[in-house]
Amino acid sequence: MQMRQVSQSARSIEPPLLNQEILAVDRVSLSFGGVKALSNVSFSVKEGSITSVIGPNGAGKTSLFNSISGFYKPSEGDVRFLGENVNKITAPERAERGMARTFQNIALFKGMTVLDNIKLGRHAHLKTNVLDALFYFGRARREECELRREIEERIIDFLEIDHIRNQSVANLSYGLQKRVELARALAMQPKILLLDEPVAGMNREETEDMARFILDVKEEWGVTVLMVEHDMGLVMDLSDHVVCLNFGKVITEGLPGDVQAHPDVISAYLGSGDVAALRKKFKEGK
């Protein structure tokens, strides 16, 4: 145990932020009882890039996201964020360090307005304590005002959701809810943004809007993006780097074009073997 501790800390002190990697997943395995959701997954996310994780359903993408954001503790391996091993750090503390995520099935707070949902994103960076809050004086008033101004001027304007700011999120369309979730994640002042299927279930127009926002987040806000997505068009157009998972393992990673052309990726998505041979086999079997 002692030895392991030492080697771990030695590893995290090692200098090699070579390509300015902001997040590194290092030989991460995750198992639930006998099911191995992830085995020996390693990749890194470079600062200022858009990295996509793709893979068929059940490949372990969301498990990977949950391990990165702190819901699951990897059974083996490390997750390093900004050069620091975050295995022992809880989800709220990871949020304070600048890790923000959105969820596949929208996780907004239905009882609050759009504005309050977005404000909630800043929670970890505000300092108001109970006494300030009860009297809404001094720090509470100042913080709330500054936060409101910033959210209005930077986030709500940017994501074009000013017309719904005072509506309850329960009444919004799916596409708008996804956009509010992105707004809330941006309010967290993230260094890295984890997007779990940002355009799932969206129509063409909403997908295009979201793609534009993701690019702007990277280029104007300078936030690194790591996303899981099934829409290959979006992944190929936006990503700087693509990681493909299947059965909990990394099949390949690299530039979007290379990954797309990789035979293992094609067989993971479409199944292996040629169709003619399969058809013949099927007929013979009959």
Binding site: S69, A91, E93, A95, A107, F109, G111, M112, R184
Partner: peptide, 21 residues
């Protein structure tokens, strides 16, 4: 303020509240 919002967040969805810090 942030404290009241945190309470409502816990009521509505405690898991995503945790991810928000």
């Amino acid at each position: 303020t942030r404290i009241g919002r945190a309470f409502i967040a816990i009521r509505d969805r405690d898991i995503s509240a945790e991810v928000l810090g």
